[in-house]
Each structure stands twice: as structure tokens, then as C-alpha cells.
Write a protein that binds this DNA or RNA. Structure first.
Lengths: 126, 126
DNA sequence: CAGAATCCGCGTGGATACTG
DNA sequence: CAGTATCCACGCGGATTCTG
């Protein structure tokens, strides 16, 4: 990381802005529901109601809320078909898919270290 | 993996158990503070008070709470030195470090898609 | 210094009802 | 079917206090 010294103060300000934005994005994205949605959205396009079924245990409200957030950050795309009844489909954008690759890695990680974690828990809970 | 089910579908039951545990781990780990702690813990060993300083904005309570969680899941190790005043050090375990690699990736991702996200936000907020 | 415990406000998130 | 709005309980998480 290029850490410019006190020379150009505008660079410094930019870095601070970038940093704070980064933390913001991180807070948005580093939450259970968002990651689960991204995971099930996968490569496919899904409707609202399908997502609701796939993301086990999510409430109507949390789903819309997180979908808005993903849309706002350009991670998912919302496509409305003006039919009746309405049909709305969600797809991951390229950045969304890139992020999903990492969620996949975390899932893999979970399964790889399963035994370790289960053991650690048993030991700790005693 | 004991719990044999007399129906013969013990594998199925095991899978369900594994799945629910996986979701549990995921919920534990997929939260802002936990990931930030893992990130700053990095390869180094840090004391409680050092962590408190490094993890910008975390409260005393959240720090202990998350550290307990990490310890319970065997992602961080807690080492107490019986001196006075007490000295407690935290280190990532191997699974913890593996997870950290992914958090790093997410950080990279954040910076890579910075522009895209900022633009998407501006567009959305209009 | 590390952390357990208590108090408590505020926001998260669920349930429900209503619109297009 | 998708989405917004309202109500409200409960639990998160901050501040503070007290030990070893």
C-alpha cells in the first residue's frame, strides 16, 4: 500500500475516504444473510420467492432489505418483468460473482476444518 | 459421527447434523467483528489491550465476546501468563490462519471493486 | 491488565396487514 | 407475486462497575 507522507494532503484525504468506504462495504457484506444470499444466488438467476425458499430461515423483510443493499452496491442486478402477477429476478453481477467465489472458499473451509472445530468446542464446553 | 439411525439412513442424519453445524459455524464467523479480529490478528500474537487498539471501534465487551467465540471454535488460542498485572495473548490457530487468508481475499476484493461499487451507489441513490 | 457482571437504550428483525 | 409500512418484542452491544 502506497503510504504517501504529508506531502499532498488531498491524497491523504482520499485515502481516508477510501478506507472509510472500504469499512462500510465490509460491514454491509460481512453479515450472515448477505453472504447466504450471494451463495445461493450462485451462477443462476432467481426470483424473489425462489430466493425466499432457498435461503433457509430468512424472513421476507430481511430478504428485501439485503437484496436492496446488494443492488445498491452493484453486486446483484434486479430485473422487473411488468407482467401480472409481477415477476422479479435477481442475478449476481461480475463483482458479485467474484465475491461469491470467496464465500465458496469459506464454505469449503468450514467443511475442511469441521473435525477440528467440533473437537475444540467439546473441549471448551467442558 | 456416531448417532446411527436404525432406519439405515444414518448417513442422511449425519449430513443433516453436519449441515446444521456448518450453518452454526458460518453464523459465528460471518460477522463484522469476528472477521476484523481475525484480520488484525494476522500472523502475529497480540495482547487483549493491543487488539482493543487495533480493531478500530470495538468495545471491550464485543472483543471479549468474540475472542471467547474464536477460542471455543478453535480458531484462536488464548495464552495466560500468571504475572501481575495479568498478561493474556491471542494467536490464530492453523484453521484460524486459513480463514484469515480468505478474509484477506475479501479485503482485496473490496479494493478491486471500489470504483464499481462507488458508482453503483451513486446511481442507486438517485 | 484482563474480564465478568450488571444495567439499559436502541436498533434489528419478525409478524402482520396493505398496495400494485 | 413482489414490495412497503407499521408495530413491537427481544437481544445486541455500549457504558459502567467490580474483581483477581
Amino acid at each position: 500500500m502506497a503510504t504517501k507522507q504529508f506531502t499532498g494532503s488531498s491524497d491523504e484525504a482520499d485515502l481516508r475516504r477510501a478506507d472509510s468506504l472500504a469499512r462500510e462495504i465490509f460491514s454491509d457484506v460481512a453479515n450472515k444473510w448477505a453472504l447466504l444470499i450471494i451463495e445461493v444466488l450462485g451462477e443462476r438467476t432467481l426470483r424473489f420467492s425462489e430466493l425466499r425458499n432457498e435461503v433457509e430461515g430468512i424472513s421476507h423483510k430481511m430478504l428485501t432489505q439485503n437484496l436492496r443493499m446488494l443492488e445498491r452496491n452493484g453486486l446483484a442486478e434486479r430485473k422487473v418483468y411488468p407482467t401480472v402477477p409481477p415477476r422479479v429476478e435477481y442475478t449476481l453481477t461480475e463483482p458479485g460473482r467474484a465475491l461469491r467465489a470467496m464465500v465458496d472458499l469459506i464454505c469449503d473451509w468450514t467443511h475442511q476444518h469441521f473435525g477440528h472445530i467440533e473437537g475444540a468446542r467439546r473441549r471448551f464446553d467442558a
